[in-house]
Design a binder for these strands. Structure first.
Length: 635
RNA sequence: GGGCCCGUAGCCUAGCCAGGAUAGGGCGCUGGCCUUCUAAGCCAGAUGUCGCAGGUUCGAGUCCUGCCGGGCCCGCCA
């Protein structure tokens, strides 16, 4: 970490100091210690860079008109001015508007950005702490569809953001290789792989997905096939037989496909976790023995749930949320753990509250060079996994209640820290046109799986590149088209807030104009093109950057560190795409208005060159480092 | 029956948690800008009962209550 300058934060602090000292001066008391002086960004920069509505709030308590309170604050300020503040205006009926002293601020902002380089926006919030981000966790029976991709994109950005603010991040992908669905896949592979031809262009996950869907439909039609599925499930549980080997082989084929798809969007993982290994590691048994130490976890002796081990949720109020009973069953009367039980145990493992006999080995090397590990019976113990200080689970919104139950259970059992540091990053699924849900069983995913969307985007991007840059060679064209296509799709999944349902709209998903990744990519390429023509940069005089388009850019640039921090700490990852769009737009407005290379004099030319360099650099951090979208060399 | 989420122009969306000054963008539509740094861009224009009704407040898209519409969840299943 080089340095951690947050210019906007510094300006805001200056404003707070002005208000604070005036309060002290007038002997006004603050209503509470978190009192924030109601500082906000005015609707128009003509009304200041920051403003405060404190006078309205204080008016009630002091029984004085807002305008007179504001005037008193202004008077105090004028006796003790701040070097970053140009002036303070009092506006009817009582606003206090603070204006930045740009001659000082521009220099601070631009020098900070150019000095810090790629670390601009970094901070030390998470230094020395580890966070686990679990995402994707798709059923390994079919290719990833756009909904799962949204999960992956969301998780990926979360991981990148948390890394940016200093956390040691471990990205996990949890695979259910024991469920009924994989048994159905295995049955299909044995009985239907003859009729569903594997065409050369099919990826394994796509082909097996077709088989899975066909098998699921067949089984639905002929319930008598249920017997075979049960048989396969039994064999899978026993392990060490032809069925368990087959399932492992098929699941590996599918997951490799998932990883390839994710890699197309620059999404990578640190650890694959197989449910089978969790079950065999004895994790649940160990966790359960710890759970039983809590007075709220006990065996029910009689009644309909006799012989079940449960956790009493009534300390949270009875009944908790919409649960029908005041307790949740952790172990069934037949001694088998429930999903809730397993989830609690796994969450405990993530925090290092249960160790179990989990072993790890190398799965492979990813496109970005990072090694991907997996759990395995044949691996070795490795204490570097798990033991997190904070856990983010990126899981669909429909699991809001079960996730809450898991976290609340930690609290009830006395793991207060683990409870406080568990976060369910919930998101709405992607819907097919006409509000049809993605379904593996029904096969509605076919044609809308992530690879298909990316392929279609690639084809359209290629046409665009062909049209706009016919002179460049084919290899480069392909490379550029790929970056544009995957960027467009990833950005589409990233720009909406997670609780909004996305109904697939091809025009929006594969959009190269407007609020899109290519718009930002184009802006960076455009700046790089100017910079490459600049040859020399003289001595800049930043105080010459006086045009409102230049000021707008500097103001926006300076907000980057605080935006990153806010996005990471409040999990509002879509703030980053929006930030990039806003900054790119401000640059483009400036670009059309003022010349850079042919600026009136050398000092201004140098200042503008550094200004646009700072824009390109910040956009690159936002787009490439935080959203994980590459920048083409040419567009 | 209970709980959670969403409802902002023809379509998509930001703003809502921490209430303030003319509700920001994008797509689409109309018109303009490539003999000066890449037009995947920029400028101008039209399009809004912020789901509805109350309430709190000097002030409500934002907070509270009720309702309407849409999605989801409430199992010894996974």
């Amino acid at each position: 970490m080089v340095s951690l300058v947050d210019p906007w934060g510094i300006f805001k602090k200056s404003v707070v100091e002005v208000l604070e000292s005036s309060f002290k001066n007038n002997n006004w008391s603050k209503p509470d210690k978190d009192f924030n002086f109601y500082i906000e960004v005015p609707p128009d920069s003509k009304l200041g860079d920051l403003s405060s509505t404190i006078a309205f709030k204080a008016a009630k308590i002091l029984k004085e008109k807002p305008i007179s309170i504001a005037s008193k604050i202004l008077r105090d300020y004028e006796l003790n001015p701040n070097k970053l503040i140009e002036r303070v205006d009092v506006v009817e009926p009582g606003y206090l508007n603070f204006y930045i002293k740009w001659s000082e601020y521009s220099k601070l902002v631009l020098e900070t950005i150019l000095n810090e380089g790629d670390s601009y926006g970094s901070s030390d919030v998470g230094v020395g702490k580890k966070v686990i981000v679990e995402h994707t966790s798709a059923n390994p029976t079919k290719p990833i569809h756009l909904g799962t991709m949204r999960c992956a994109v969301l998780g990926d950005i979360t991981a990148r953001l948390l890394r940016k603010i200093g956390y040691n991040v471990e990205v996990q992908n949890y695979m259910d290789d024991l469920g009924r669905q994989v048994a159905v896949l295995a049955w299909g592979y044995q009985n239907l792989s003859g009729e569903i031809e594997k065409k050369p262009e099919y990826k394994d996950d796509y082909w097996l997905g077709l088989i899975y869907t066909a098998a699921a439909q067949k089984i639905e039609e002929k319930p008598e096939l249920e017997e075979s599925i049960k048989n396969i499930l039994k064999k899978m549980e026993e392990g060490g037989n032809e069925y368990s080997d087959l399932v492992q082989k098929l699941v590996y084929m599918v997951v490799k496909g998932h990883l390839e798809t994710a890699a197309r969007m620059n999404i990578f993982y640190d650890l694959l976790i197989w449910e089978k290994d969790i079950v065999r590691s004895g994790l649940f048994k160990e966790a359960l023995s710890k759970m039983l130490k809590s007075p709220h976890v006990y065996r029910i002796e009689e009644g309909e749930d006799a012989n079940c081990i449960v956790i009493d949720m009534s300390p949270l109020g009875e009944p908790y949320k919409s649960l029908k009973k005041s307790y949740k069953i952790l172990v069934r009367s037949d001694g088998v753990s429930t999903y809730t039980g397993k989830d609690i145990a796994f969450q405990m493992w993530k925090f290092g509250l249960a160790e179990a006999d989990l072993k790890f080995r190398v799965f492979g090397v990813q496109k970005n060079g990072r090694i991907l590990m997996e759990t395995s019976q044949d691996g070795e113990a490795n204490r570097s996994f798990g033991h997190a200080d904070k856990v983010v689970n990126v899981i669909g919104y429909e699991q809001a209640l079960p996730q809450q139950v898991v976290y609340q259970a930690l609290k009830i059992m006395g793991y207060e820290e683990a409870y406080k540091n568990s976060y369910h990053l919930s998101f709405q699924w992607v819907w097919l046109p006409e509000q049809v849900a993605f379904s593996g069983r029904k096969g509605t995913w076919i044609g809308f799986h992530a690879d298909a969307v990316l392929d279609k985007a690639l084809q359209l991007a290629m046409e665009e590149v062909e049209k706009r840059n016919p002179e460049i060679d084919l290899e480069l064209k392909k490379k550029i088209a790929e970056v544009i296509a995957s960027g467009a799709v990833k950005f589409y999944l990233a720009k909406y807030s997670p609780e909004k349902k996305i109904v697939i709209d091809w025009k929006e998903a594969i959009n190269f104009e407007g609020d899109s990744a290519p718009y930002i990519q184009y802006t960076i390429v455009r700046i790089n093109s100017i910079l490459s023509k600049a040859e020399h940069i003289g001595e800049p005089d930043y105080s010459l950057l006086k045009d409102e388009t230049e000021i707008d850019i500097i103001r926006e640039l300076s907000k980057f560190p605080s935006t990153v921090k806010e996005a990471a700490e409040t999990y509002q990852y879509h703030l980053i795409p929006h930030y990039c769009l806003t900054l790119a737009n401000k640059f483009n407005v400036f670009y059309h208005k003022l010349p850079v290379l042919k600026a009136e004099n050398d000092a201004l030319r140098a200042a503008r060159l550094n200004l646009i360099k700072a824009v390109a650099q910040t956009l690159k951090i936002g787009l490439k480092d935080l959203i994980g979208i590459d920048i083409p060399v040419k567009m």
